[in-house]
Design a protein around this nucleic acid. Structure first.
Length: 461
RNA sequence: GGCUAGGUGGCAGAGUGGUGAUGCGGCGGCCUGCAAAGCCGUUCUACGUCGGUUCGAAUCCGGCCCUAGCCUCCA
């Protein structure tokens, strides 16, 4: 029985899909005007885990993630680069795929692009105008009249009166209410635009997701996710538009992932404290980054530090050392751990707890191996791989992972192998001084040796 | 000012009304030529604060303090 924390109600609820055996999942994707930073990576990995786990539970999942390819920031970026919007969005869409693929994220089933769905957005806007929820300003902008939608604030807990009093709500621009938001923006000279019943213009941000989600998943679907920063106003406005248009509830469960922080602050472009995924991937294996993201609960904040990444790496090393040297086979044994793992995952995707179970399993693998029962150890190791796989982890070859290291050690594999062989000979000859000198030399180059009953293995720091 | 999350041991990070997750680190032991790794044991009065409920709370309730986020584009 899967329970998930629904931000709409603020509590954990038993998940019941609308259609038996099927889950419609919509996640707000990127605005493609720059490279992904770690915050984007978190959202991608979090919902990749959600999607994977739902499938592991046997659900058919329709996973939809949009691509916002029309937006003020894109226009600005294209101007800045002296390129067309299409060129810019294509480049950063490709970059997003590279990053997401590297981190082992399965591609969504559907990835609607805003520019390909303007018709659906216009239809939705028209519907809202007809139903009296939206109005056209004298400048040709269309606004959603927030006051006409009594349930406004159901997701964020914000009250309309508080919002109006808030210092940061803009007024003017033809709005009748400061809290109203744009559905359609009249084109300024030189801006990309589409013809519409209200004049040349382009869609507002919020209407994109309402239109595309409904288009792909219907007027009522199961799960809508995104970063915490989208909760208000974006998701609140999506709800208002969609429910106003269809006249009933829209999404059953809302999921929001927490922010990545750096030095206790949100990682954000405006603060200039962000790290791009590709910069981090240049220094750490993608699986380490993924582990780091999965090692804390998706709803909480995640502090980015070098220590945390190092920690993620040593955790993975522990797993891969347990796996090392055992044959890939069918899982056997570890049923109790598997049950605990699933219990954790079904409790609002508690990945840290699930990982704790995996550590227990790794210890059991080591115990069995130490006891000389390699057969049992191999069965458990396969179980460990199987469960890790549900999180998108532990799919690598242990030797490969352990020998990959963080940076350049200066010594290539054949050199290391040669030195190891030389040391082995020295040890055989009981020339321990020479053997230790070689080991020290390797260690200085970031190579750690481990002497086992079946010879010496090594890994990079 | 309003709204939303949080405040856990040396660090990271789960969890729970009553037997001190898990990882990293420290210490001791086994193993090893010595290490490393592994295993075993262990350290550390851990749960922001003040009250309340309870046989019993860190876990429930209330006040307070602090942190972060949102209220403007943001995963």
């Amino acid at each position: 029985m899967l329970r998930i924390h629904n931000s709409l109600t603020g509590r954990k609820e038993v998940f019941r899909p609308i259609e038996d055996g099927h889950v419609g999942l919509y996640v707000c994707g990127m605005t493609v005007y720059d490279y992904c930073h770690l915050g984007h990576a978190r959202a991608m990995v979090v919902f990749d885990v959600v999607q994977r786990y739902l499938r592991a539970l046997g659900y058919r999942v329709t996973y939809v993630r949009n691509i916002t390819d029309i937006d003020d920031k894109i226009i600005a970026r294209a101007d800045e680069l002296g390129e067309s919007m299409g060129v810019v969005t294509r480049r950063f869409t490709e970059a997003m795929y590279e990053d997401a693929d590297a981190m082992g994220c399965r591609r969504p089933d559907r990835e609607p692009r805003a520019t390909a769905n303007v018709d659906a957005m216009q239809a939705l806007i028209q519907r809202l105008i007809d139903a009296g929820y939206a109005y056209v300003s004298e400048h040709g902008d269309v606004y959603f009249a927030v006051a006409r939608f009594p349930d406004y604030g159901q997701l964020s807990g914000e009250r309309l009166s508080d919002l109006r009093e808030g210092a940061r709500v803009e007024s003017g621009e033809g709005k009748t209410d400061a809290a109203d938001f744009a559905l359609w923006k009249a084109a300024k000279p030189g801006e990309p635009s589409w013809p519409s019943p209200w004049g040349e213009g382009r869609p507002g941000w919020h209407i994109e997701c309402s239109a595309m989600a409904t288009n792909e998943l219907g007027e009522r679907f199961d799960i809508h996710g995104g970063g915490l920063d989208l909760k208000f106003p974006h998701h609140e406005n999506e709800i208002a538009q969609s429910e106003a248009a269809c006249g009933h509830g829209w999404v059953n469960y809302w999921l929001h992932n927490g922010h990545v922080r750096i030095d206790g602050e949100k990682m954000a472009k405006s603060l200039g404290n962000f790290f791009t995924v590709r910069d981090i991937l240049a220094q750490y294996p993608a699986e380490v980054v993924r582990y780091f993201l999965v090692a804390s609960h998706y709803r909480g904040p995640l502090n980015y530090t070098l220590e945390a990444l190092a920690n993620a790496r040593s955790s993975l090393e522990r797993f891969y050392r347990a796996l090392r040297g055992l044959p890939w086979g069918e899982p056997s044994g570890g049923e109790a751990e598997a049950a605990r793992f699933h219990e954790a995952m079904q409790d609002d995707f508690n990945t840290p707890e699930a990982l704790a179970v995996l550590f227990d399993l790794a210890r059991e693998v080591n115990r069995q191996r130490e006891a000389g029962d390699e057969r049992t150890a191999a069965g458990l190791a396969a179980r460990l791989r199987e469960l890790g796989g549900l999180l998108g982890l532990l799919g690598d070859d242990p030797e490969r992972f352990l020998k990959s290291g963080t940076g350049a050690s200066g010594l290539d594999d054949p050199t290391v192998e040669a030195m190891v062989a030389e040391r082995t000979q020295a040890r055989k000859d009981r020339e321990f001084e020479r053997a230790d000198a070689l080991r020290d030399q390797l260690q200085a180059a970031g190579i750690i040796l481990e002497d086992g009953p079946e010879g010496t293995s090594w890994r990079r720091v």
